[in-house]
Amino acid sequence: MNTDNSKLTITPLGAGNEVGRSCILLQYCDKQIMFDCGIHMNKENKGVMALPYFNKIDKIEDIDLILITHFHLDHCGALPYFLKNYKFKGKIYMTTPTKEIYGLVLKDSIKVKSEDFSQDLINEQSIEQS
């Protein structure tokens, strides 16, 4: 018997038809898991255009957890922005190596300044808070 509560819904918030901006919302029963929170690395997508489509999420506060699969910017680069600008109260999981490298990769992207998103969307304070 399939009820609305037991329906599995997968919503690509990025990376659905592209490489980059990896972010997928999975809903099953009363749980919501967001896989990755990446940034688009294409030079044409600058500022908020480089972010996942967070506006497609009905209630961000209902997301139970975020799972960051690895430390590449297209999988974790939007996390500081997301945490600073939305009312997410769940838990964030990532492997120990990803956690150790995550902040370094993001801070390096600000220093290099070759990724146009970094100066507008994230800063060292938002990285540290994340």
Rank of each mutant, 00 (worst) to 15 (best):
51 L>W: 09
15 A>H: 13
37 C>M: 13
52 P>H: 09
58 D>K: 15
65 L>T: 13
103 G>L: 00
47 G>S: 11
32 Q>F: 03
83 L>R: 12
96 T>H: 05
33 I>W: 07
45 N>T: 08
105 V>P: 00
60 I>C: 01
21 R>H: 03
115 E>L: 14
80 P>T: 14
60 I>H: 06
59 K>A: 11
41 M>Q: 06
57 I>D: 02
15 A>V: 04
72 H>F: 08
12 P>Y: 15
27 Q>Y: 00
109 S>R: 00
57 I>H: 06
15 A>P: 03
19 V>A: 11
96 T>Y: 09
87 K>R: 09
75 H>E: 14
93 Y>S: 04
61 E>T: 10
33 I>S: 06
111 K>H: 07
46 K>D: 09
62 D>K: 15
114 S>A: 03
66 I>K: 02
27 Q>N: 09
69 T>M: 03
112 V>K: 11
91 K>S: 10
102 Y>E: 00
108 D>F: 12
38 G>L: 00
113 K>Q: 13
41 M>E: 09
89 K>V: 14
43 K>F: 10
84 K>V: 01
83 L>G: 03
65 L>K: 13
75 H>M: 02
69 T>D: 07
20 G>N: 03
44 E>H: 03
92 I>R: 02
15 A>R: 06
61 E>C: 03
16 G>F: 02
26 L>I: 15
64 D>E: 06
115 E>V: 08
56 K>A: 05
73 L>M: 10
19 V>F: 10
67 L>A: 14
62 D>E: 14
97 P>I: 10
64 D>Q: 02
30 D>V: 05
15 A>D: 08
111 K>I: 08
112 V>R: 12
22 S>G: 04
48 V>L: 01
71 F>Q: 10
39 I>L: 04
11 T>D: 00
88 F>E: 04
58 D>I: 15
88 F>W: 06
80 P>Y: 06
60 I>R: 08
59 K>Y: 14
11 T>H: 00
101 I>M: 12
97 P>C: 06
91 K>A: 08
32 Q>K: 15
53 Y>G: 01
50 A>F: 01
54 F>R: 09
59 K>D: 13
44 E>T: 11
96 T>P: 00
16 G>K: 13
19 V>R: 12
94 M>E: 04
70 H>N: 15
85 N>V: 09
86 Y>V: 06
79 L>F: 07
60 I>L: 00
26 L>N: 01
82 F>Y: 07
52 P>K: 06
71 F>N: 11
43 K>A: 13
80 P>N: 10
60 I>T: 13
81 Y>Q: 04
90 G>I: 03
58 D>T: 15
88 F>N: 05
20 G>C: 07
40 H>D: 14
79 L>I: 13
62 D>F: 07
42 N>C: 00
67 L>D: 06
73 L>I: 15
44 E>K: 10
13 L>G: 01
50 A>K: 01
44 E>P: 00
43 K>W: 03
101 I>K: 12
61 E>S: 12
48 V>E: 09
110 I>L: 14
43 K>S: 15
58 D>M: 10
60 I>G: 01
53 Y>Q: 10
96 T>L: 08
110 I>R: 08
90 G>M: 02
64 D>N: 15
86 Y>W: 03
35 F>T: 03
61 E>V: 04
72 H>A: 11
84 K>T: 15
20 G>K: 07
40 H>Y: 03
49 M>Y: 08
18 E>W: 12
106 L>V: 07
18 E>D: 12
55 N>V: 05
36 D>V: 12
20 G>I: 05
36 D>W: 07
17 N>Q: 13
